[in-house]
Simulated assay, not measured.
Amino acid sequence: MTHATLKTLSRDLHDFADEASDHLKDAARKTGTDASEALARSSKAISRAADRLRDEAENSAATTRAQMSETVRAYPVSTSVVAGAVVALLATFVLVRLSQA
């Protein structure tokens, strides 16, 4: 995610949280049907925030996958060396842990 996207997302989530907070405060002041309606509005605001966060995460994941695929295609040998090194480090870590157990 770019810095601008994170900033926008943060601002949007903050706005949604403020909206939900206002609805909850309103519900606390009311009783009966009015309170139920305020809680329903609060729930909708929280759901919208969660949906927005999920959408941004999906978009970010798709962008990252595309960038990784492009990098792998552009530098197949380097990518293989790095992947091999990561696998070797993980294998070493596992073997060291197993030998300590």
Score class of each variant (00 low, 15 high):
residue 48 R to M: 08
residue 11 R to I: 04
residue 16 F to C: 10
residue 87 V to L: 05
residue 87 V to W: 04
residue 13 L to Q: 00
residue 45 A to M: 01
residue 94 V to D: 14
residue 40 A to V: 15
residue 74 A to F: 12
residue 94 V to N: 14
residue 33 T to H: 12
residue 11 R to L: 02
residue 70 E to P: 04
residue 82 V to N: 03
residue 20 A to Q: 02
residue 69 S to T: 10
residue 16 F to K: 12
residue 89 L to C: 06
residue 95 L to N: 15
residue 29 R to E: 13
residue 70 E to C: 13
residue 69 S to V: 15
residue 62 A to V: 07
residue 72 V to F: 06
residue 26 D to I: 08
residue 65 R to T: 15
residue 55 D to H: 13
residue 25 K to N: 10
residue 54 R to A: 05
residue 52 R to N: 11
residue 26 D to N: 03
residue 64 T to Q: 05
residue 34 D to S: 07
residue 9 L to H: 04
residue 8 T to W: 05
residue 9 L to C: 03
residue 86 V to E: 12
residue 4 A to H: 12
residue 28 A to H: 11
residue 83 A to V: 08
residue 65 R to Q: 14
residue 30 K to G: 07
residue 68 M to A: 09
residue 7 K to T: 02
residue 36 S to P: 11
residue 51 D to Y: 14
residue 95 L to E: 13
residue 39 L to F: 14
residue 37 E to N: 15
residue 65 R to P: 06
residue 13 L to N: 01
residue 71 T to R: 08
residue 9 L to D: 02
residue 99 S to L: 04
residue 41 R to H: 00
residue 80 S to D: 02
residue 40 A to C: 09
residue 3 H to P: 13
residue 58 E to S: 07
residue 50 A to T: 13
residue 81 V to W: 07
residue 79 T to E: 00
residue 38 A to E: 01
residue 52 R to P: 10
residue 54 R to Q: 06
residue 57 A to E: 08
residue 23 H to Y: 01
residue 21 S to T: 10
residue 79 T to R: 02
residue 11 R to V: 07
residue 13 L to G: 02
residue 24 L to R: 09
residue 52 R to I: 09
residue 99 S to C: 03
residue 40 A to R: 02
residue 30 K to F: 09
residue 1 M to E: 05
residue 95 L to H: 12
residue 89 L to H: 05
residue 44 K to I: 10
residue 15 D to R: 00
residue 88 A to F: 06
residue 90 L to I: 08
residue 24 L to D: 09
residue 65 R to I: 13
residue 97 R to L: 12
residue 47 S to Y: 13
residue 58 E to P: 15
residue 15 D to M: 00
residue 86 V to Q: 11
residue 6 L to S: 04
residue 33 T to D: 07
residue 32 G to K: 01
residue 12 D to R: 00
residue 5 T to P: 08
residue 87 V to K: 08
residue 84 G to S: 01
residue 66 A to K: 05
residue 1 M to T: 12
residue 95 L to A: 15
residue 92 T to L: 15
residue 72 V to I: 08
residue 86 V to A: 14
residue 85 A to M: 15
residue 64 T to F: 06
residue 2 T to Y: 06
residue 45 A to Y: 00
residue 95 L to M: 10
residue 20 A to C: 01
residue 68 M to T: 06
residue 27 A to V: 02
residue 47 S to C: 11
residue 31 T to G: 07
residue 19 E to A: 11
residue 92 T to R: 14
residue 53 L to T: 14
residue 27 A to E: 02
residue 6 L to C: 04
residue 8 T to F: 04
residue 58 E to D: 05
residue 67 Q to Y: 12
residue 72 V to W: 05
residue 9 L to K: 03
residue 36 S to H: 12
residue 2 T to L: 07
residue 89 L to P: 00
residue 26 D to V: 07
residue 44 K to W: 13
residue 76 P to E: 00
residue 21 S to H: 14
residue 2 T to A: 11
residue 50 A to H: 15
residue 49 A to H: 01
residue 50 A to G: 15
residue 99 S to I: 04
residue 11 R to P: 07
residue 87 V to T: 05
residue 23 H to I: 03
residue 69 S to Y: 06
residue 29 R to G: 14
residue 20 A to F: 02
residue 73 R to T: 12
residue 26 D to R: 02
residue 35 A to Q: 01
residue 65 R to G: 11
residue 2 T to D: 10
residue 37 E to Q: 10
residue 81 V to Y: 12
residue 56 E to I: 05
residue 19 E to H: 04
residue 26 D to W: 02
residue 38 A to I: 08
residue 41 R to A: 07
residue 38 A to S: 03
residue 56 E to F: 04
residue 6 L to T: 06
